[in-house]
Design a protein around this nucleic acid. Structure first.
Lengths: 224, 224
DNA sequence: AGGTACGAAATCGTATACGATCACTATCCA
DNA sequence: TGGATAGTGATCGTATACGATTTCGTACCT
């Protein structure tokens, strides 16, 4: 799944710049490079076996996506975990996910619903075995099934960008909250029910938004 | 106004890469480079007086924002005016503008309301003198006043990106529709009323969304 | 005449090289 | 002893250069 998540701007596939982008991004998302990690152009270039120019381009692209921060004549570091930034990202995600869900809902067939339900079932099992990593992955899969026929690729792209940002944060400070995860699975079921019964687009959007903001609230409750 | 529109990632101010970015972007937005215009790295570099590397970086950044399209070993061109793309952009804008307006509404003081109203009055005058360019600029000013205290910079950034995309399209195919412009001014007044009276966030969001989708509908009606 | 193959020009992609800027340390002076 | 300062190393920013790829025009063949 992870590698099939089509980006809107995939920028000259096969180029070293693209390879560098994918490589560094992967390391960030999977947690090899944790927030604060210093990304030195020369070092990365040597690592990957090519010159600094394409690496530089890759880093700048990641900067545009918010995965790394860049400072002139100083260098790049993996983007930090500022709680404020987390709030911004989650709030934005609630909006774009809400819209993506509402727009997609009328186009989802019963077969997709069944697949989504199967994924959600797997998530339940993850709760038993306590597998947060897989749970997060399945969570994205679940929503991606719903977004399969999303009529607006721009919005979908915004959703994926938000997910990437979160992935960079996840593995460090922001922790998996089991109680919240359990609720999340129930909300998925509720969402599927709304879609199945052809509920009002507005109601679906609100439910999808709450699904995201609830996670944010859980985080806020945990820290205060 | 135009130049004070702070970008989220302003990338090493003073660098040539940044200068190139600003220069090319300005030419696209103001219509010097129209859609389809071929952006040749070497030529632009010579024009601006520096080498191709920073220019290349600038172009890639513009690509990420959707202002130019890029093809490997072929080059960059100013992004086109595909009606589908226009629809995507407008739809996305309606969503992010709606959210930005609703989030900002509770934070807008009466002084800002007055300023927004003044801008809207100027827009009315533009209708008399038929000044589409200034009208469009004032329209952005109007909404920027409302967004002044927007609590989420990410969403604001998405709004600005959408505006830039539209700016690239505007000067060519998509025309100014006087009837629609007149309605737009009335909708602004309605929006201000809702904000002043402390209307429900949901109602404000819906009104702001409609304000954008109405323009889209007017375009669709015009072409069919 | 039409189409295909070849070749040259244009343009991009990347490597290498050097100058500019910043952080850090050690030293000197008060 | 504490702070300022000069020097050094590391890293970035950009220029230049060259190889790779594409495009377009021309000549040739059918």
């Amino acid at each position: 799944m992870t590698e099939t998540m089509a980006e809107l701007s995939e920028a000259t596939p096969g180029s070293k710049s693209e390879q560098a982008y994918q490589a560094v991004k992967a390391r960030i998302v999977e947690g090899t490079y944790t927030p604060g990690y210093r990304l030195v152009l020369g070092t990365i270039a040597k690592d990957l076996g090519f010159s600094v120019v394409p690496v530089r381009e890759a880093i700048r692209r990641l900067e545009a996506e918010g995965l790394v921060t860049f400072e002139r004549n100083v260098g790049a570091t993996v983007a930090g975990i500022d709680p404020t930034e987390y709030l911004y990202t989650m709030q934005t995600l609630s909006i774009v996910e809400g819209a993506a869900t509402a727009l997609s809902a009328p186009l989802i067939d019963s077969q997709s619903i069944a697949r989504a339900r199967a994924v959600n079932q797997e998530m339940r099992e993850c709760l038993e075995h306590f597998d947060p990593v897989r749970f997060t992955q399945l969570n994205q899969d679940f929503h991606n099934v719903l977004f399969e026929h999303c009529p607006n690729p721009h919005i979908l792209d915004l959703v994926h960008r938000g997910w990437n940002r979160l992935a960079a944060l996840r593995s460090s400070t922001f922790r998996f909250v089991p109680g919240r995860a359990r609720d999340s699975v129930e909300e998925h079921e509720n969402l599927l029910h709304l879609i199945e019964t052809g509920a009002d687009a507005d109601d679906i959007e609100k439910a999808a938004r709450r699904h995201r903001t609830a996670t944010l609230d859980a985080y806020l409750a945990q820290t205060t």
